[in-house]
């Protein structure tokens, strides 16, 4: 478990949970959770290479564009939904979050923070920011709905999502007490455990 985000998510998920991972990539998080937490997991993915890796790793995967709808999973009774590094790529992230919390008791979201000081500095210097959590150049990015930690926490308030846990990561994607002090300025990325009110 070298990936600190995987580490955090694994801590937050209880044994034997039913987990749906939106944008599961090659299924590595679900594999980790299956092997260590004995979860029942399903991944949603659109990238053919990721899907094939999931099949190899014996991870259930559904080929689907998340933007095409989340409602269909509403009767599947998931305990936790995971949306790691994909919320900012969605057409309507606020509606997606609402729908996810409709089909799952809890939702773990990661947010690349555009308020991070390096992003602010880059913009101040007249450049689009490129950081560990926002690694792509402006023309190559899939991110269409970026926000700051403050923006995201405001959304949670507006939509009545309860923030049960949060962690703030530094540039090295490690949990940082410094970042926790002033997350909007000092954290590169936020990880949130949300619940419905």
């Amino acid at each position: 478990m070298n990936n600190p985000i995987t580490n955090i998510i694994t801590k937050w998920i209880e044994d034997n949970s039913r987990v749906i991972d939106f944008g599961c990539g090659d299924g590595s998080l679900l594999t980790e959770l299956r092997d260590n937490k004995h979860i029942l997991g399903y991944g949603i993915e659109i990238d053919p290479d990721g899907i094939n890796e999931c099949l190899k790793n014996n991870i259930s995967v559904v080929e689907k564009d998340i933007d095409d709808g989340i409602d269909e999973f509403v009767n599947c009774n998931f305990d936790v939904a995971v949306m790691a590094s994909s919320i900012q790529c969605l057409k309507e992230p606020n509606i997606a979050l609402k729908k996810i919390l409709n089909l799952s008791n809890k939702c773990i979201v990661t947010i690349p923070n555009l308020g991070y000081w390096r992003c602010r500095l880059a913009l101040l210097l007249g450049r689009m920011p490129v950081t560990p959590s926002l690694p792509s150049s402006w023309y190559g990015t899939e991110n269409i709905h970026l926000c700051t930690i403050k923006d995201f926490e405001d959304l949670c308030k507006e939509e009545d999502f309860i923030i049960e846990e949060n962690m703030h990561l530094n540039k090295k994607r490690q949990v940082s007490s410094l970042a926790k002090l002033m997350p909007n300025l000092l954290s590169c990325e936020g990880v949130y455990l949300l619940a419905r009110k």
Binding site: R18, L40, Y42, I51, C54, L55, N58, S60, V61, V62, E63, K64, E72, F73, N75, C76, N77
Partner: peptide, 14 residues
């Protein structure tokens, strides 16, 4: 696949 998911059966859809 959706029905399988509801019944907690390992299932993939491509």
């Amino acid at each position: 696949q959706l029905a399988a998911m509801q019944s907690e059966i390992s299932s993939s859809y491509l």
